[in-house]
Amino acid sequence: MNIFRLTADMTHLMSVIVLLLKIHTIKSCAGISLKTQELYAIVFTCRYLDIFTDFISFYNTIMKVIFLWTSFSIVWYMRYHKIVRRSYDKDQDTFRHVFLMLPCLVLALLINERFTFKEVMWTFSFYLEAVAILPQLVLLQRTRNIDNLTGQYIFLLGAYRALYILNWIYRYVTEPNYVHWIPWMSGLVQTLLYGDFFYYYFLSWKNNVKLQLPA
């Protein structure tokens, strides 16, 4: 474990907590894409298939349980909670999951470290996580008004992957033959997708104005 990875995991955890706080306290999911949340639940399910078979550390297992539990809770809140679901903007959140999942699945079948079920699912989860934010970014452009909590949620979500890249560089430099192109390439694409959001988020912070994404 290194400081980059620990900070990254804590940033990721913070993003989930910010979203759960928003949904649980003000009972609203305005501006949040259910599609993205469902994709994240799928990402964690496919990535943590080994949660019961391969024990790595208490930290690893506890964090996996937290991410699985929170991602499914958020989807449950947005789908079934009688108050929260009213603030879900299903007419704007129209991105089709299948357009993201299918190419990622095909790519995972073609490019993977080993052609086994768990390995392909693990690989699929990295490709899918890289693009899972797209429905959320599309929704932001459509809804225009981005409340602070939503902006912070997306910022933390992007920052966690950028920190993972620092972790991968650190491990590549310090650990012999530590090479994992699949997470590296996926993580890079994922972070780049946040690029313009980070730019407008920084501008809104610098000029102290409300966050607005160009149409």
Binding site: N60, M63, W122, P183
Partner: peptide, 10 residues
């Protein structure tokens, strides 16, 4: 096995 050791990240 070695590959699972390398899967020590979340």
């Amino acid at each position: 096995n070695p590959t699972y050791k390398s899967k020590d990240e979340l």
